[in-house]
Design a protein around this nucleic acid. Structure first.
Lengths: 244, 244
DNA sequence: CGCTGTATTGATAAATATCAACCTCAGTGG
DNA sequence: CCACTGAGGTTGATATTTATCAATACAGCG
């Protein structure tokens, strides 16, 4: 799919989580004993791989588990009654999908693999029960949920195509950086149409903004490979979206 | 402020929550005994009134409590580095504000009263602790948080001015209806500029769409009073946003 | 009454979408 | 090995939506 290997979280084992996983810090940081650790591990089920285009879940399916992306990229989207697709988000290794399904007890959107995806699936009912006894886990869940409210609101604002594109690139840069990958050089795993749809732009506009950014020396784009040449300048453009 | 009295939730007492409050159902539905009920009540602090334009909290302030709106309307918004305001949402009686602050332990946005607002404030740390022993409360919190992720994503999509305005009116209609008020006749408590900003439109566009809807017989608008004349037709226009 | 802030209306401008053509690359199969 | 093919991407010309600017209306209030 992409010219360089996809970022992949290192696999966990019986006593360690995958290092990039959102849940990895819970036990250790809180100083839980081995039995609590093991209990949490019991909830984890490694699933996949899902291949490019395969669905992880579909809108309306009963919800029973959230999942941390272990490798690959997941796209979530909905389709309106007229069949128009609306991309809701992209999820990289270490990020959690399915949190928006708790409310209705069924998935409110579709989730599809953009490349080869593996997941760590956690039974949500069991996790909630365990969270009763593990304040740290409960706190983590509250935080993850709260964080997603903010994320969803980020790009909802009224910003120009340039501002949204810059913010898009910066968030990916940072999300890769957190997981130990280069913040200035990465491969976008999604098509231009997906980026466009996510940012409420036409695919042609995405092309044009990429070109403009390249002509201005901000980035270098080759197919889906992106190199950020002037991170500071790009951040400056994204400032109003990211509010810094 | 508005020509008719604002919707107000009936006050709770030591043993009952305000009837429209999101938290009212927790105890009774779960069959908790009086002591648990009293514990939850101990967390509640009635605050306000806040008057039109007064801030309930401001961006960056330390977070320690979520609050259910008891009366009035709260607007949340952020301002970007250039000083441009971005309205994030409006909160009616029974709805909960502050959920997006858990993540960073400080409020990520401003909250301001649009009319006379009273709140029931709940200490979040205490609530989280109590939720350890009350599965129903934990579940409610998870649900409220999850729900807000979806709400934030609703209007983030790429829809026309008409579609967004229709969806805006329909959601208010339904939210009032849930609280026992007329779904077809209500007063908008916010200015046109706020509606416009929230929907990523110019205030002039809001005026024009209102006029068009009125000319088409969908609604009747007089200042901030709205009457929905053809609910079905309006819902039809909002369908793609609400996905029904 | 006249002021002030909010809302409406009309004319024009700007941003972005749409349409159409073309390019490029990775497969694919002769 | 190489032409064919098709999906994804780019580019240019034009259309459309919505914003912006400017003027006016209108209610609320001292």
């Amino acid at each position: 799919m992409s010219p360089r290997p996809n970022p992949i979280a290192d696999d966990g084992d019986e006593f360690r989580f995958c290092s990039t996983c959102a849940f990895s810090a819970v036990c250790l940081a809180q100083g839980y004993d081995k039995s609590a650790l093991r209990e949490l591990h019991c909830l984890v089920e490694h699933v996949g791989p899902f291949h490019d285009g395969e669905h992880v879940f579909r809108e309306g399916e009963p919800f029973n588990a959230i999942a941390a992306v272990r490798a690959g990229t997941v796209k979530t989207y909905v389709t309106d009654p007229a069949g128009r697709e609306q991309v809701l988000g992209f999820f990289l290794p270490g990020e959690v999908i399915g949190l928006n399904a708790i409310h209705q007890a069924k998935y409110p959107c579709n989730a599809v693999a953009l490349d080869t995806v593996t997941l760590c699936r956690f039974s949500f009912p069991m996790m909630a029960t365990l969270a009763q006894r593990m304040p740290g886990l409960q706190t983590l869940l509250f935080r993850l949920l709260s964080q997603d409210i903010g994320k969803a609101a980020l790009l909802a604002g009224d910003y120009s195509a340039d501002e949204r594109m810059a913010a898009f690139l910066i968030t990916f840069s940072r999300r890769y950086a957190v997981r130990g990958f280069s913040p200035t050089r990465f491969a976008l795993t999604m098509a231009r149409t997906d980026i466009a749809n996510y940012l409420r732009l036409a695919a042609e506009t995405v092309s044009r903004v990429f070109r403009r950014f390249q002509d201005e020396g901000l980035i270098r784009v080759d197919r889906r490979e992106v190199e950020i040449l002037d991170l500071a300048a790009l951040e400056e453009r994204a400032r109003c979206v990211l509010r810094e």
